[in-house]
Amino acid sequence: MQTDFFDLLKGHGYAWPHLEGKGTAMPMTESTTILAVRYRDGVVIAGDRRATAGTAILYDRADKVIDIDTHSVLAISGSPAMAYEIARILEHSFKYYRRSQLQELSLEGKLRMLSNLIRNNLPMALQGIGAVIPIFASYDLDAVDGNTGKIFFYDAMGAQFECADFATTGSGSVWIRGALYYLNCWEKRLDTMELNESVGLIFRLLDAASEYDAATSGYNAKSKILPTMKTIDVEGIHTLDDAFLQEIYHEFVEVAHVG
Protein backbone atom coordinates (compact mmCIF):
# COMPACT_ATOMS: atom_id res chain seq x y z
CA MET A 1 0.00 0.00 0.00
CA GLN A 2 1.50 3.29 -1.11
CA THR A 3 0.85 5.96 1.53
CA ASP A 4 3.92 8.14 1.23
CA PHE A 5 4.06 10.82 -1.42
CA PHE A 6 7.83 11.23 -1.12
CA ASP A 7 8.35 7.53 -1.91
CA LEU A 8 6.00 7.90 -4.86
CA LEU A 9 8.04 10.87 -6.13
CA LYS A 10 11.29 8.94 -5.80
CA GLY A 11 9.68 6.08 -7.70
CA HIS A 12 9.11 8.56 -10.51
CA GLY A 13 12.79 9.47 -10.64
CA TYR A 14 12.86 12.36 -8.19
CA ALA A 15 16.26 12.76 -6.52
CA TRP A 16 17.04 14.92 -3.52
CA PRO A 17 19.75 17.41 -4.50
CA HIS A 18 23.21 16.61 -3.18
CA LEU A 19 26.76 17.70 -3.87
CA GLU A 20 29.80 15.56 -4.47
CA GLY A 21 32.99 16.57 -2.66
CA LYS A 22 33.52 19.34 -0.18
CA GLY A 23 31.20 22.27 0.13
CA THR A 24 32.51 25.67 -0.86
CA ALA A 25 32.16 28.87 1.10
CA MET A 26 29.51 30.19 -1.23
CA PRO A 27 27.52 33.07 0.24
CA MET A 28 24.08 31.73 0.99
CA THR A 29 20.72 33.31 1.40
CA GLU A 30 19.98 31.93 4.82
CA SER A 31 19.53 34.73 7.29
CA THR A 32 16.22 35.76 8.68
CA THR A 33 14.03 36.13 11.74
CA ILE A 34 11.10 33.79 12.28
CA LEU A 35 8.99 33.55 15.38
CA ALA A 36 5.85 31.83 16.52
CA VAL A 37 4.02 32.67 19.76
CA ARG A 38 0.91 31.25 21.31
CA TYR A 39 -1.83 33.76 21.97
CA ARG A 40 -5.30 33.43 23.46
CA ASP A 41 -6.97 31.75 20.46
CA GLY A 42 -4.07 29.79 18.98
CA VAL A 43 -0.75 30.67 17.42
CA VAL A 44 0.66 33.70 15.56
CA ILE A 45 3.52 32.98 13.18
CA ALA A 46 5.60 35.78 11.73
CA GLY A 47 8.61 36.21 9.51
CA ASP A 48 10.53 39.15 8.10
CA ARG A 49 10.76 39.48 4.33
CA ARG A 50 14.49 39.80 3.63
CA ALA A 51 16.64 37.36 1.67
CA THR A 52 20.39 38.01 1.73
CA ALA A 53 23.58 36.58 0.24
CA GLY A 54 26.61 37.68 2.19
CA THR A 55 26.18 41.39 2.72
CA ALA A 56 23.93 41.83 -0.29
CA ILE A 57 20.19 42.10 0.06
CA LEU A 58 18.79 39.88 -2.68
CA TYR A 59 15.12 40.34 -2.18
CA ASP A 60 12.87 42.22 0.20
CA ARG A 61 9.55 40.49 -0.41
CA ALA A 62 10.28 36.88 0.45
CA ASP A 63 7.45 34.92 2.08
CA LYS A 64 8.88 32.66 4.70
CA VAL A 65 5.60 31.66 6.33
CA ILE A 66 3.84 29.06 4.22
CA ASP A 67 0.41 27.41 4.56
CA ILE A 68 0.72 23.63 4.50
CA ASP A 69 -2.86 22.57 5.13
CA THR A 70 -6.00 24.05 6.73
CA HIS A 71 -4.46 24.16 10.24
CA SER A 72 -0.68 23.92 9.73
CA VAL A 73 1.95 26.47 8.82
CA LEU A 74 5.64 26.06 8.13
CA ALA A 75 7.94 29.02 8.75
CA ILE A 76 11.37 28.64 7.27
CA SER A 77 14.85 29.83 7.97
CA GLY A 78 17.85 28.53 6.11
CA SER A 79 18.49 27.78 2.48
CA PRO A 80 15.37 28.99 0.63
CA ALA A 81 15.79 26.53 -2.24
CA MET A 82 15.67 23.54 0.09
CA ALA A 83 13.14 25.12 2.43
CA TYR A 84 10.60 25.79 -0.33
CA GLU A 85 11.18 22.29 -1.67
CA ILE A 86 10.47 20.83 1.76
CA ALA A 87 7.33 22.96 2.11
CA ARG A 88 6.10 21.85 -1.29
CA ILE A 89 6.71 18.17 -0.64
CA LEU A 90 5.07 18.47 2.76
CA GLU A 91 1.94 20.13 1.37
CA HIS A 92 1.59 17.47 -1.30
CA SER A 93 2.33 14.70 1.21
CA PHE A 94 -0.47 15.71 3.57
CA LYS A 95 -2.94 16.03 0.72
CA TYR A 96 -1.81 12.78 -0.84
CA TYR A 97 -2.24 10.95 2.44
CA ARG A 98 -5.73 12.34 2.98
CA ARG A 99 -6.88 11.60 -0.56
CA SER A 100 -5.39 8.14 -0.84
CA GLN A 101 -6.11 6.90 2.70
CA LEU A 102 -9.47 8.69 3.10
CA GLN A 103 -8.47 10.10 6.48
CA GLU A 104 -6.37 13.00 7.75
CA LEU A 105 -2.80 12.33 8.76
CA SER A 106 -2.44 12.76 12.53
CA LEU A 107 -0.44 15.68 13.90
CA GLU A 108 2.23 13.20 15.06
CA GLY A 109 2.37 11.74 11.58
CA LYS A 110 2.77 15.19 10.07
CA LEU A 111 5.63 16.04 12.42
CA ARG A 112 7.32 12.77 11.62
CA MET A 113 7.08 13.43 7.90
CA LEU A 114 8.72 16.85 8.28
CA SER A 115 11.42 15.31 10.47
CA ASN A 116 12.21 12.75 7.77
CA LEU A 117 12.47 15.43 5.10
CA ILE A 118 14.87 17.49 7.17
CA ARG A 119 17.01 14.43 7.89
CA ASN A 120 17.05 13.73 4.18
CA ASN A 121 18.55 17.16 3.76
CA LEU A 122 21.41 16.46 6.19
CA PRO A 123 24.13 16.05 3.53
CA MET A 124 23.21 19.48 2.15
CA ALA A 125 23.27 20.93 5.66
CA LEU A 126 26.70 19.39 6.36
CA GLN A 127 28.08 20.85 3.16
CA GLY A 128 27.22 24.17 4.70
CA ILE A 129 24.96 25.30 1.92
CA GLY A 130 21.53 23.83 2.36
CA ALA A 131 20.56 23.72 6.03
CA VAL A 132 16.87 24.26 6.72
CA ILE A 133 15.70 25.05 10.25
CA PRO A 134 11.94 25.50 10.30
CA ILE A 135 9.21 26.13 12.82
CA PHE A 136 6.04 24.11 12.37
CA ALA A 137 2.89 25.49 13.94
CA SER A 138 -0.46 23.81 14.07
CA TYR A 139 -3.81 23.90 15.77
CA ASP A 140 -4.59 20.57 17.36
CA LEU A 141 -8.32 20.01 16.94
CA ASP A 142 -8.08 16.77 18.94
CA ALA A 143 -6.14 18.16 21.90
CA VAL A 144 -7.67 16.84 25.09
CA ASP A 145 -5.82 19.13 27.49
CA GLY A 146 -7.14 22.35 25.92
CA ASN A 147 -3.61 23.03 24.75
CA THR A 148 -4.60 23.54 21.17
CA GLY A 149 -2.06 25.90 19.62
CA LYS A 150 1.11 23.89 19.03
CA ILE A 151 4.58 25.09 18.10
CA PHE A 152 7.45 22.82 17.13
CA PHE A 153 10.99 23.55 16.08
CA TYR A 154 13.61 21.35 14.50
CA ASP A 155 17.36 21.17 14.37
CA ALA A 156 19.26 20.58 11.13
CA MET A 157 19.24 16.82 11.71
CA GLY A 158 15.49 16.58 12.01
CA ALA A 159 15.14 16.31 15.79
CA GLN A 160 11.80 17.77 16.81
CA PHE A 161 11.01 19.75 19.94
CA GLU A 162 7.71 21.07 21.14
CA CYS A 163 7.78 24.58 22.54
CA ALA A 164 5.47 25.58 25.34
CA ASP A 165 4.84 29.22 24.45
CA PHE A 166 7.11 30.48 21.70
CA ALA A 167 9.84 29.55 19.24
CA THR A 168 12.30 31.61 17.24
CA THR A 169 14.77 30.76 14.51
CA GLY A 170 17.05 32.51 12.03
CA SER A 171 20.05 34.78 12.46
CA GLY A 172 17.99 37.56 14.07
CA SER A 173 16.34 35.25 16.56
CA VAL A 174 19.22 35.32 19.05
CA TRP A 175 18.48 38.97 19.76
CA ILE A 176 14.87 38.38 20.73
CA ARG A 177 14.71 34.98 22.41
CA GLY A 178 15.79 36.39 25.74
CA ALA A 179 13.27 39.21 25.46
CA LEU A 180 10.45 36.70 24.84
CA TYR A 181 11.52 34.60 27.79
CA TYR A 182 11.64 37.64 30.04
CA LEU A 183 8.23 38.92 28.91
CA ASN A 184 6.56 35.54 29.25
CA CYS A 185 7.96 34.95 32.74
CA TRP A 186 7.70 38.32 34.42
CA GLU A 187 5.55 40.70 32.38
CA LYS A 188 2.57 38.89 30.92
CA ARG A 189 1.95 35.35 29.79
CA LEU A 190 1.99 35.26 25.98
CA ASP A 191 -0.90 32.81 25.74
CA THR A 192 -3.21 35.21 27.61
CA MET A 193 -2.70 37.99 25.05
CA GLU A 194 -5.33 39.19 22.61
CA LEU A 195 -4.38 39.10 18.94
CA ASN A 196 -3.68 42.88 18.84
CA GLU A 197 -1.32 42.71 21.74
CA SER A 198 0.47 39.66 20.40
CA VAL A 199 0.93 41.19 16.95
CA GLY A 200 2.15 44.46 18.51
CA LEU A 201 4.71 42.53 20.50
CA ILE A 202 5.88 40.67 17.39
CA PHE A 203 6.34 43.98 15.56
CA ARG A 204 8.49 45.28 18.39
CA LEU A 205 10.58 42.11 18.46
CA LEU A 206 11.10 42.11 14.69
CA ASP A 207 12.11 45.75 14.94
CA ALA A 208 14.62 44.83 17.66
CA ALA A 209 15.96 41.96 15.59
CA SER A 210 16.41 44.19 12.55
CA GLU A 211 18.24 46.70 14.70
CA TYR A 212 20.97 44.15 15.48
CA ASP A 213 20.81 41.72 12.57
CA ALA A 214 21.56 43.06 9.09
CA ALA A 215 19.86 40.06 7.53
CA THR A 216 16.47 40.85 9.09
CA SER A 217 14.27 43.55 7.63
CA GLY A 218 12.20 45.80 9.84
CA TYR A 219 9.09 47.51 8.54
CA ASN A 220 10.11 49.28 5.39
CA ALA A 221 7.96 52.43 5.49
CA LYS A 222 9.21 53.75 2.15
CA SER A 223 7.95 50.80 0.11
CA LYS A 224 5.39 49.67 2.72
CA ILE A 225 6.75 46.15 2.99
CA LEU A 226 5.29 44.50 6.07
CA PRO A 227 6.38 41.26 7.69
CA THR A 228 4.28 38.18 6.92
CA MET A 229 2.00 37.24 9.81
CA LYS A 230 -0.50 34.43 10.05
CA THR A 231 -2.70 33.14 12.82
CA ILE A 232 -4.01 29.61 13.30
CA ASP A 233 -7.14 29.24 15.37
CA VAL A 234 -9.95 26.72 15.54
CA GLU A 235 -11.31 27.85 12.15
CA GLY A 236 -7.98 27.55 10.37
CA ILE A 237 -5.28 29.83 9.01
CA HIS A 238 -5.77 33.55 8.54
CA THR A 239 -3.22 35.75 6.81
CA LEU A 240 -3.29 39.14 8.55
CA ASP A 241 -3.88 41.87 6.01
CA ASP A 242 -1.72 44.94 5.48
CA ALA A 243 -4.28 47.46 6.74
CA PHE A 244 -4.62 45.64 10.06
CA LEU A 245 -0.85 45.24 10.40
CA GLN A 246 -0.23 48.92 9.63
CA GLU A 247 -2.74 49.96 12.27
CA ILE A 248 -1.09 47.76 14.90
CA TYR A 249 2.36 48.94 13.84
CA HIS A 250 1.30 52.54 14.23
CA GLU A 251 -0.22 51.95 17.68
CA PHE A 252 2.37 49.62 19.20
CA VAL A 253 5.61 50.72 17.56
CA GLU A 254 5.30 54.35 16.52
CA VAL A 255 2.91 55.88 19.06
CA ALA A 256 4.13 53.80 21.98
CA HIS A 257 7.76 54.60 21.26
CA VAL A 258 9.32 56.50 24.17
CA GLY A 259 12.76 57.29 22.75
Binding site: F5, L8, H12, Y14, I89, H92, Y96
Partner: peptide, 8 residues
Protein backbone atom coordinates in the same frame (compact mmCIF):
# COMPACT_ATOMS: atom_id res chain seq x y z
CA UNK B 1 -0.60 10.84 -11.47
CA UNK B 2 -2.24 14.07 -10.35
CA UNK B 3 0.08 14.53 -7.36
CA UNK B 4 3.34 13.75 -9.14
CA UNK B 5 2.33 16.06 -11.98
CA UNK B 6 1.12 18.82 -9.66
CA UNK B 7 4.31 18.67 -7.63
CA UNK B 8 6.79 18.62 -10.48
Amino acid sequence: MAHVEGFS
